[in-house]
């Protein structure tokens, strides 16, 4: 490794070994490459939505309503004559955005809460984790439903609701390794070097527990996308006519016996994304598996 990095003095070399282990884990679990590729395609589609969309996703064209797939409308049209394909690619944007941002928030806030609870321990730990357990006892869909019903459906509120449901699992997943890492000799050595508690947590504990949090993140992103779709499906998502996958399923649901493809397209999209994320999660889980981790665990 020293031969390769040679003169990379300025670049933080910390990532190299973790990256190599990640590649090894992905290679032993080939499906995670498939997942990663699929997810990358979905993200690319979402980013390129304005280019890929063949029609305006919101513009209604009542004359073309409920058309089957054709050359002009790749996946057909819905009850208002809107192009399904265009709505699907724009829906990908919103679904990924809501899922991604809410999980990012949950990851940051949840990990912080879990690390603080685990690091300081004692009554603070008990109090924090009791609150987390109460939140955890609600199924995420129910909790999300309650929050959105109270605050009203909007992108911001959806993100808040989904983040709230995902914070407790992140707090738990961050707390457990923190409790064991903080007892290690090197943390006492850090204390002997006079480092402050926030510094010890951020610089010395976080890198040790980050892989676990990352795995959780990939799996919960799938859940977040599902919850968003579910909330949209029951009418608590982003208001129409903004295209979302859950909303499209619901619109198609009204005519499902005659025009099944309306619900089919967004359902398949959700299925593909959730599958892809779970496959990535499998690879990442191998990466943090202590059996493969070997020397890294210390």
């Amino acid at each position: 490794m020293s031969a390769v990095t040679g003169d990379m003095a300025a670049a933080p070399p910390r990532a190299n070994r973790a990256l190599r282990q990640l590649l090894a884990a992905f290679n032993t679990n080939k499906t995670s490459w498939v997942g990663l590729a699929t997810f990358a395609v979905v993200v690319a589609i979402a980013i390129l939505a304005p280019v890929l969309a063949t029609h305006d996703p919101i513009e209604q064209n009542i004359l073309e309503k409920l058309k089957g797939p054709s050359a002009e409308f790749i996946l057909g049209t819905d009850g208002f004559g809107r192009d399904i394909w265009s709505r699907l690619v724009y829906g990908a944007r919103l679904s990924l955005w809501i899922g991604g941002v809410s999980i990012l928030i949950a990851m940051v806030v949840g990990s912080l809460i879990g690390m603080v609870a685990g690091y300081f321990g004692g009554r603070l730990d008990i109090a924090i984790m009791q609150v987390m357990d109460v939140l955890l006892s609600f199924p995420s869909l129910i909790l999300g439903l309650m929050v959105v019903a109270m605050m009203g459906p909007s992108v911001g509120n959806l993100i808040f609701a989904i983040a709230l449901t995902a914070i407790p699992p992140f707090a738990r997943i961050a707390r457990a390794p923190t409790v064991s890492v903080k007892e290690r000799d090197y943390i006492e050595a850090c204390r002997a070097l006079g480092y402050s508690h926030p510094r010890i947590m951020a610089v010395h504990i976080l890198p040790n527990i980050f892989p676990e949090i990352l795995v959780m993140g990939s799996l919960w992103l799938a859940t977040a996308i599902r919850v968003e779709a579910s909330l949209s499906f029951i009418g608590l998502g982003v208001r129409p006519p903004t295209p979302t996958w859950g909303g499209m399923i619901r619109e198609g649901f009204e005519n499902i016996l005659d025009t099944w493809w309306l619900s089919m397209a967004p359902s398949v999209a959700i299925l593909v994304v959730v599958f892809a994320l779970n496959m990535i999660g499998d690879g990442l889980r191998d990466f943090v598996d202590p059996k493969l981790k070997g020397e890294r665990g210390g």
């Binding site: 070399p13 000799d185 090197y186 006492e188 610089v203 890198p207 020397e295 890294r296 210390g298």
Partner: peptide, 9 residues
């Protein structure tokens, strides 16, 4: 053996 953080250089 255990007084150095394994994930930092």
């Amino acid at each position: 053996m255990t007084s150095l953080n394994p994930v930092l250089t």
